[in-house]
Design a binder for these strands. Sequence first.
DNA 1: GTCTATAATTTGATAGAC
DNA 2: GTCTATCAAATTATAGAC
Lengths: 176, 176
Amino acid sequence: MDERTMRDRILDAAEARARTSGYHGFSFRELADDVGVKSSSIHYHFPTKGDLGAALAKRYATRAGDYLGDPASVGPEEAVTRLTQLFRDALVRDDKMCLCGLFGAEHESLPPEVASATGDFFRLVLGYLTAAFGPRWAGEAPAAILARLEGALIIARALGDVNLFEVAAQGPSRGG
Amino acid sequence: MDERTMRDRILDAAEARARTSGYHGFSFRELADDVGVKSSSIHYHFPTKGDLGAALAKRYATRAGDYLGDPASVGPEEAVTRLTQLFRDALVRDDKMCLCGLFGAEHESLPPEVASATGDFFRLVLGYLTAAFGPRWAGEAPAAILARLEGALIIARALGDVNLFEVAAQGPSRGG
DNA sequence: GTCTATAATTTGATAGAC
DNA sequence: GTCTATCAAATTATAGAC
Protein backbone atom coordinates (compact mmCIF):
# COMPACT_ATOMS: atom_id res chain seq x y z
CA MET A 1 0.00 0.00 0.00
CA ASP A 2 0.95 3.60 -0.41
CA GLU A 3 1.43 4.97 3.08
CA ARG A 4 1.92 8.53 1.87
CA THR A 5 -0.79 11.08 2.43
CA MET A 6 -2.49 12.39 -0.68
CA ARG A 7 -0.83 15.73 0.00
CA ASP A 8 2.60 14.08 -0.10
CA ARG A 9 1.79 12.06 -3.19
CA ILE A 10 0.81 15.26 -4.97
CA LEU A 11 3.97 17.00 -3.78
CA ASP A 12 6.07 14.05 -4.95
CA ALA A 13 4.56 14.18 -8.42
CA ALA A 14 4.84 17.96 -8.55
CA GLU A 15 8.45 17.91 -7.41
CA ALA A 16 9.43 15.40 -10.08
CA ARG A 17 7.85 17.52 -12.79
CA ALA A 18 9.02 20.88 -11.44
CA ARG A 19 12.60 19.63 -11.15
CA THR A 20 12.45 18.63 -14.82
CA SER A 21 10.45 21.44 -16.39
CA GLY A 22 10.33 24.30 -13.90
CA TYR A 23 7.38 26.08 -12.33
CA HIS A 24 5.84 27.01 -15.68
CA GLY A 25 6.43 23.56 -17.11
CA PHE A 26 3.85 21.46 -15.31
CA SER A 27 0.07 21.55 -14.91
CA PHE A 28 -2.56 20.43 -12.42
CA ARG A 29 -3.93 18.02 -15.03
CA GLU A 30 -0.57 16.29 -15.39
CA LEU A 31 -0.20 15.93 -11.63
CA ALA A 32 -3.72 14.57 -11.40
CA ASP A 33 -2.91 11.90 -14.00
CA ASP A 34 0.36 11.07 -12.23
CA VAL A 35 -1.39 10.58 -8.89
CA GLY A 36 -4.54 8.99 -10.30
CA VAL A 37 -7.14 11.58 -9.33
CA LYS A 38 -8.91 14.48 -11.01
CA SER A 39 -7.42 17.96 -11.17
CA SER A 40 -10.18 19.34 -8.95
CA SER A 41 -8.88 17.05 -6.20
CA ILE A 42 -5.45 18.66 -6.52
CA HIS A 43 -7.11 22.03 -6.06
CA TYR A 44 -8.72 20.75 -2.87
CA HIS A 45 -5.27 20.21 -1.34
CA PHE A 46 -3.60 23.22 -2.99
CA PRO A 47 -6.13 25.90 -3.98
CA THR A 48 -3.77 27.70 -6.35
CA LYS A 49 -0.61 26.78 -8.21
CA GLY A 50 1.22 29.34 -6.11
CA ASP A 51 0.19 27.48 -2.95
CA LEU A 52 1.51 24.25 -4.42
CA GLY A 53 4.76 25.84 -5.60
CA ALA A 54 5.41 27.40 -2.21
CA ALA A 55 4.70 24.11 -0.39
CA LEU A 56 7.08 22.41 -2.81
CA ALA A 57 9.94 24.80 -2.09
CA LYS A 58 9.30 24.70 1.67
CA ARG A 59 9.36 20.92 1.81
CA TYR A 60 12.50 20.86 -0.33
CA ALA A 61 14.28 23.29 2.01
CA THR A 62 13.17 21.40 5.12
CA ARG A 63 14.46 18.11 3.75
CA ALA A 64 17.77 19.71 2.77
CA GLY A 65 18.13 21.11 6.28
CA ASP A 66 17.42 17.69 7.79
CA TYR A 67 19.97 16.05 5.51
CA LEU A 68 22.68 18.61 6.24
CA GLY A 69 22.20 18.43 9.99
CA ASP A 70 23.45 20.76 12.69
CA PRO A 71 26.31 22.90 11.34
CA ALA A 72 27.74 23.30 14.86
CA SER A 73 28.48 19.59 15.02
CA VAL A 74 29.91 18.81 11.59
CA GLY A 75 32.94 20.98 10.88
CA PRO A 76 33.80 22.80 7.63
CA GLU A 77 34.99 19.85 5.53
CA GLU A 78 32.06 17.63 6.46
CA ALA A 79 29.62 20.47 5.78
CA VAL A 80 30.93 20.85 2.23
CA THR A 81 30.96 17.08 1.76
CA ARG A 82 27.32 16.82 2.82
CA LEU A 83 26.21 19.68 0.61
CA THR A 84 28.10 18.22 -2.33
CA GLN A 85 26.44 14.86 -1.75
CA LEU A 86 23.04 16.54 -1.66
CA PHE A 87 23.63 17.85 -5.18
CA ARG A 88 25.24 14.64 -6.39
CA ASP A 89 22.11 12.79 -5.28
CA ALA A 90 19.99 15.19 -7.30
CA LEU A 91 22.10 14.46 -10.37
CA VAL A 92 22.81 10.75 -10.07
CA ARG A 93 20.08 9.27 -7.89
CA ASP A 94 17.18 11.52 -8.94
CA ASP A 95 18.38 12.59 -12.39
CA LYS A 96 16.75 15.93 -11.66
CA MET A 97 17.65 19.56 -11.09
CA CYS A 98 17.79 21.13 -7.66
CA LEU A 99 14.21 22.38 -7.29
CA CYS A 100 15.29 25.74 -5.91
CA GLY A 101 18.08 26.10 -8.45
CA LEU A 102 15.47 25.93 -11.18
CA PHE A 103 12.95 28.07 -9.28
CA GLY A 104 15.75 30.53 -8.54
CA ALA A 105 16.49 30.84 -12.25
CA GLU A 106 12.78 31.53 -12.88
CA HIS A 107 12.67 33.78 -9.82
CA GLU A 108 11.28 36.94 -11.39
CA SER A 109 8.37 35.15 -13.00
CA LEU A 110 7.24 33.24 -9.90
CA PRO A 111 4.25 34.07 -7.68
CA PRO A 112 5.59 35.98 -4.64
CA GLU A 113 5.02 33.13 -2.17
CA VAL A 114 7.02 30.74 -4.37
CA ALA A 115 9.86 33.22 -4.88
CA SER A 116 9.98 33.83 -1.14
CA ALA A 117 10.14 30.14 -0.24
CA THR A 118 12.84 29.67 -2.86
CA GLY A 119 14.90 32.42 -1.28
CA ASP A 120 14.53 30.68 2.08
CA PHE A 121 16.29 27.61 0.66
CA PHE A 122 19.32 29.66 -0.36
CA ARG A 123 19.39 31.48 2.97
CA LEU A 124 19.26 28.14 4.77
CA VAL A 125 22.20 26.66 2.86
CA LEU A 126 24.32 29.82 3.06
CA GLY A 127 23.60 30.06 6.79
CA TYR A 128 24.54 26.41 7.22
CA LEU A 129 27.92 26.83 5.54
CA THR A 130 28.58 30.11 7.32
CA ALA A 131 27.86 28.52 10.71
CA ALA A 132 29.91 25.41 9.93
CA PHE A 133 32.88 27.47 8.73
CA GLY A 134 32.98 29.78 11.75
CA PRO A 135 34.40 33.31 11.90
CA ARG A 136 38.00 32.30 11.17
CA TRP A 137 37.27 30.63 7.84
CA ALA A 138 39.62 31.86 5.11
CA GLY A 139 38.65 29.42 2.36
CA GLU A 140 36.11 29.67 -0.46
CA ALA A 141 33.04 31.73 0.43
CA PRO A 142 29.73 29.92 1.12
CA ALA A 143 28.08 31.65 -1.83
CA ALA A 144 30.89 30.50 -4.15
CA ILE A 145 30.54 26.89 -3.03
CA LEU A 146 26.77 26.84 -3.39
CA ALA A 147 26.97 28.62 -6.75
CA ARG A 148 29.48 26.08 -8.02
CA LEU A 149 27.20 23.17 -7.08
CA GLU A 150 24.07 24.70 -8.64
CA GLY A 151 25.96 25.50 -11.82
CA ALA A 152 27.68 22.11 -11.90
CA LEU A 153 24.27 20.44 -11.85
CA ILE A 154 23.07 22.51 -14.79
CA ILE A 155 26.19 21.97 -16.90
CA ALA A 156 26.45 18.25 -16.21
CA ARG A 157 22.81 17.73 -17.13
CA ALA A 158 22.89 19.99 -20.19
CA LEU A 159 25.90 18.13 -21.55
CA GLY A 160 24.81 14.70 -20.30
CA ASP A 161 28.14 14.16 -18.56
CA VAL A 162 28.07 13.23 -14.87
CA ASN A 163 31.84 13.57 -14.68
CA LEU A 164 31.52 17.28 -15.42
CA PHE A 165 29.72 17.61 -12.10
CA GLU A 166 32.61 15.99 -10.29
CA VAL A 167 35.14 18.21 -12.06
CA ALA A 168 33.18 21.36 -11.25
CA ALA A 169 32.26 20.28 -7.73
CA GLN A 170 35.91 19.57 -6.98
CA GLY A 171 36.50 23.29 -7.04
CA PRO A 172 39.82 24.99 -6.44
CA SER A 173 41.39 22.24 -4.34
CA ARG A 174 42.85 20.02 -7.04
CA GLY A 175 45.03 17.30 -5.63
CA GLY A 176 48.23 17.06 -7.71
CA MET B 1 13.35 54.28 -36.65
CA ASP B 2 13.85 50.70 -35.65
CA GLU B 3 16.60 49.40 -37.90
CA ARG B 4 16.31 45.86 -36.60
CA THR B 5 14.79 43.21 -38.82
CA MET B 6 11.48 41.77 -37.68
CA ARG B 7 13.29 38.53 -37.00
CA ASP B 8 15.66 40.30 -34.62
CA ARG B 9 12.87 42.25 -32.94
CA ILE B 10 11.08 38.97 -32.28
CA LEU B 11 14.27 37.37 -30.97
CA ASP B 12 14.90 40.38 -28.71
CA ALA B 13 11.44 40.15 -27.20
CA ALA B 14 11.70 36.38 -26.85
CA GLU B 15 15.11 36.59 -25.23
CA ALA B 16 13.90 39.09 -22.65
CA ARG B 17 10.97 36.87 -21.72
CA ALA B 18 12.88 33.57 -21.87
CA ARG B 19 15.64 34.96 -19.66
CA THR B 20 13.01 35.88 -17.08
CA SER B 21 10.57 32.98 -17.26
CA GLY B 22 12.28 30.16 -19.11
CA TYR B 23 11.27 28.31 -22.25
CA HIS B 24 7.89 27.25 -20.84
CA GLY B 25 7.22 30.70 -19.44
CA PHE B 26 6.48 32.75 -22.55
CA SER B 27 4.03 32.52 -25.43
CA PHE B 28 3.74 33.59 -29.05
CA ARG B 29 0.88 35.89 -28.10
CA GLU B 30 3.03 37.73 -25.57
CA LEU B 31 5.84 38.16 -28.08
CA ALA B 32 3.36 39.40 -30.68
CA ASP B 33 2.10 42.04 -28.24
CA ASP B 34 5.66 43.03 -27.33
CA VAL B 35 6.63 43.52 -30.97
CA GLY B 36 3.30 44.94 -32.11
CA VAL B 37 2.15 42.29 -34.56
CA LYS B 38 -0.16 39.28 -34.49
CA SER B 39 0.96 35.87 -33.30
CA SER B 40 0.51 34.42 -36.79
CA SER B 41 3.24 36.80 -37.95
CA ILE B 42 5.58 35.33 -35.35
CA HIS B 43 4.84 31.90 -36.80
CA TYR B 44 5.78 33.18 -40.24
CA HIS B 45 9.32 33.87 -39.00
CA PHE B 46 9.53 30.91 -36.62
CA PRO B 47 7.11 28.10 -37.59
CA THR B 48 7.27 26.37 -34.21
CA LYS B 49 8.26 27.38 -30.71
CA GLY B 50 11.14 24.92 -30.95
CA ASP B 51 12.47 26.79 -34.00
CA LEU B 52 12.32 30.04 -32.05
CA GLY B 53 13.95 28.56 -28.95
CA ALA B 54 16.79 27.07 -30.96
CA ALA B 55 17.38 30.35 -32.83
CA LEU B 56 17.41 32.10 -29.47
CA ALA B 57 20.08 29.81 -28.01
CA LYS B 58 22.17 29.95 -31.20
CA ARG B 59 22.18 33.74 -31.31
CA TYR B 60 22.99 33.86 -27.61
CA ALA B 61 25.98 31.54 -28.07
CA THR B 62 27.21 33.43 -31.12
CA ARG B 63 27.11 36.75 -29.29
CA ALA B 64 28.91 35.25 -26.31
CA GLY B 65 31.62 33.92 -28.60
CA ASP B 66 32.01 37.33 -30.24
CA TYR B 67 32.26 39.02 -26.85
CA LEU B 68 34.83 36.57 -25.51
CA GLY B 69 37.05 36.80 -28.58
CA ASP B 70 39.86 34.55 -29.67
CA PRO B 71 41.11 32.49 -26.71
CA ALA B 72 44.55 32.16 -28.32
CA SER B 73 45.07 35.89 -27.96
CA VAL B 74 43.76 36.69 -24.50
CA GLY B 75 45.57 34.59 -21.88
CA PRO B 76 44.06 32.77 -18.89
CA GLU B 77 43.38 35.75 -16.59
CA GLU B 78 41.79 37.87 -19.30
CA ALA B 79 39.65 34.94 -20.42
CA VAL B 80 38.20 34.56 -16.91
CA THR B 81 37.77 38.31 -16.61
CA ARG B 82 35.83 38.47 -19.87
CA LEU B 83 33.61 35.54 -18.97
CA THR B 84 32.94 37.02 -15.55
CA GLN B 85 32.00 40.34 -17.14
CA LEU B 86 29.63 38.54 -19.51
CA PHE B 87 27.71 37.20 -16.52
CA ARG B 88 27.94 40.46 -14.57
CA ASP B 89 26.36 42.22 -17.54
CA ALA B 90 23.51 39.71 -17.48
CA LEU B 91 22.93 40.46 -13.81
CA VAL B 92 23.54 44.22 -13.59
CA ARG B 93 22.96 45.61 -17.08
CA ASP B 94 20.21 43.27 -18.24
CA ASP B 95 18.77 42.18 -14.88
CA LYS B 96 18.21 38.79 -16.49
CA MET B 97 19.37 35.20 -16.26
CA CYS B 98 21.87 33.68 -18.63
CA LEU B 99 19.56 32.31 -21.35
CA CYS B 100 21.40 29.02 -21.56
CA GLY B 101 21.71 28.71 -17.80
CA LEU B 102 17.94 28.76 -17.58
CA PHE B 103 17.47 26.56 -20.66
CA GLY B 104 20.09 24.20 -19.26
CA ALA B 105 18.12 23.86 -16.04
CA GLU B 106 15.02 23.03 -18.09
CA HIS B 107 17.09 20.83 -20.38
CA GLU B 108 15.11 17.59 -20.13
CA SER B 109 11.84 19.26 -20.97
CA LEU B 110 13.06 21.18 -24.04
CA PRO B 111 12.44 20.28 -27.69
CA PRO B 112 15.55 18.47 -28.97
CA GLU B 113 16.72 21.32 -31.19
CA VAL B 114 16.60 23.75 -28.25
CA ALA B 115 18.40 21.36 -25.91
CA SER B 116 21.05 20.82 -28.56
CA ALA B 117 21.67 24.52 -29.16
CA THR B 118 21.84 25.04 -25.39
CA GLY B 119 24.52 22.38 -25.11
CA ASP B 120 26.47 24.18 -27.85
CA PHE B 121 26.68 27.26 -25.65
CA PHE B 122 28.26 25.31 -22.82
CA ARG B 123 30.65 23.54 -25.18
CA LEU B 124 31.65 26.90 -26.63
CA VAL B 125 32.46 28.45 -23.25
CA LEU B 126 34.25 25.38 -21.91
CA GLY B 127 36.27 25.17 -25.13
CA TYR B 128 37.11 28.85 -24.85
CA LEU B 129 38.47 28.52 -21.32
CA THR B 130 40.28 25.29 -22.13
CA ALA B 131 41.99 26.91 -25.11
CA ALA B 132 42.85 30.07 -23.17
CA PHE B 133 44.28 28.08 -20.28
CA GLY B 134 46.48 25.84 -22.37
CA PRO B 135 47.75 22.37 -21.48
CA ARG B 136 49.86 23.51 -18.50
CA TRP B 137 46.98 25.09 -16.58
CA ALA B 138 46.90 23.88 -12.95
CA GLY B 139 44.23 26.24 -11.64
CA GLU B 140 40.47 25.88 -11.31
CA ALA B 141 38.88 23.73 -14.01
CA PRO B 142 36.89 25.43 -16.81
CA ALA B 143 33.73 23.60 -15.74
CA ALA B 144 34.16 24.81 -12.15
CA ILE B 145 34.54 28.43 -13.26
CA LEU B 146 31.54 28.35 -15.57
CA ALA B 147 29.45 26.53 -12.95
CA ARG B 148 30.33 29.14 -10.34
CA LEU B 149 29.21 31.97 -12.62
CA GLU B 150 25.91 30.32 -13.59
CA GLY B 151 25.14 29.55 -9.97
CA ALA B 152 26.22 32.98 -8.79
CA LEU B 153 23.72 34.55 -11.17
CA ILE B 154 20.91 32.39 -9.81
CA ILE B 155 21.73 33.01 -6.15
CA ALA B 156 22.26 36.75 -6.53
CA ARG B 157 18.94 37.12 -8.35
CA ALA B 158 17.00 34.83 -6.02
CA LEU B 159 18.21 36.78 -2.99
CA GLY B 160 18.16 40.17 -4.70
CA ASP B 161 21.75 40.86 -3.71
CA VAL B 162 24.19 41.84 -6.47
CA ASN B 163 27.09 41.63 -4.02
CA LEU B 164 26.48 37.90 -3.65
CA PHE B 165 27.43 37.56 -7.31
CA GLU B 166 30.73 39.30 -6.69
CA VAL B 167 31.44 37.15 -3.65
CA ALA B 168 30.67 33.95 -5.53
CA ALA B 169 32.36 35.04 -8.74
CA GLN B 170 35.50 35.89 -6.80
CA GLY B 171 36.02 32.20 -6.31
CA PRO B 172 38.92 30.61 -4.47
CA SER B 173 41.40 33.45 -4.96
CA ARG B 174 40.51 35.66 -2.02
CA GLY B 175 42.89 38.51 -1.56
CA GLY B 176 43.71 38.87 2.15
C1' DG C 1 4.87 39.74 -44.76
C1' DT C 2 0.95 40.73 -42.06
C1' DC C 3 -3.66 40.21 -41.37
C1' DT C 4 -8.42 37.82 -39.81
C1' DA C 5 -10.30 33.86 -38.46
C1' DT C 6 -10.26 29.66 -36.51
C1' DA C 7 -9.09 25.08 -35.05
C1' DA C 8 -7.91 21.79 -31.38
C1' DT C 9 -6.06 21.46 -27.02
C1' DT C 10 -4.67 22.84 -22.49
C1' DT C 11 -4.61 25.94 -18.70
C1' DG C 12 -5.88 27.38 -13.72
C1' DA C 13 -9.83 27.45 -11.27
C1' DT C 14 -14.90 26.91 -9.42
C1' DA C 15 -19.73 24.91 -8.31
C1' DG C 16 -22.12 21.49 -6.56
C1' DA C 17 -23.40 16.34 -6.25
C1' DC C 18 -22.08 12.38 -3.59
C1' DG D 1 -12.24 14.24 -0.10
C1' DT D 2 -13.20 13.02 -4.69
C1' DC D 3 -16.09 13.28 -8.36
C1' DT D 4 -18.60 15.41 -12.83
C1' DA D 5 -19.23 19.25 -15.22
C1' DT D 6 -18.02 23.46 -16.61
C1' DC D 7 -15.87 27.94 -17.29
C1' DA D 8 -13.12 31.69 -19.33
C1' DA D 9 -8.88 32.30 -20.93
C1' DA D 10 -4.70 30.96 -23.05
C1' DT D 11 -1.93 27.79 -25.81
C1' DT D 12 0.53 26.29 -30.37
C1' DA D 13 -0.49 26.21 -34.86
C1' DT D 14 -2.79 26.58 -39.65
C1' DA D 15 -5.66 28.41 -43.80
C1' DG D 16 -6.39 31.78 -46.72
C1' DA D 17 -7.41 36.90 -47.84
C1' DC D 18 -4.84 41.04 -48.83
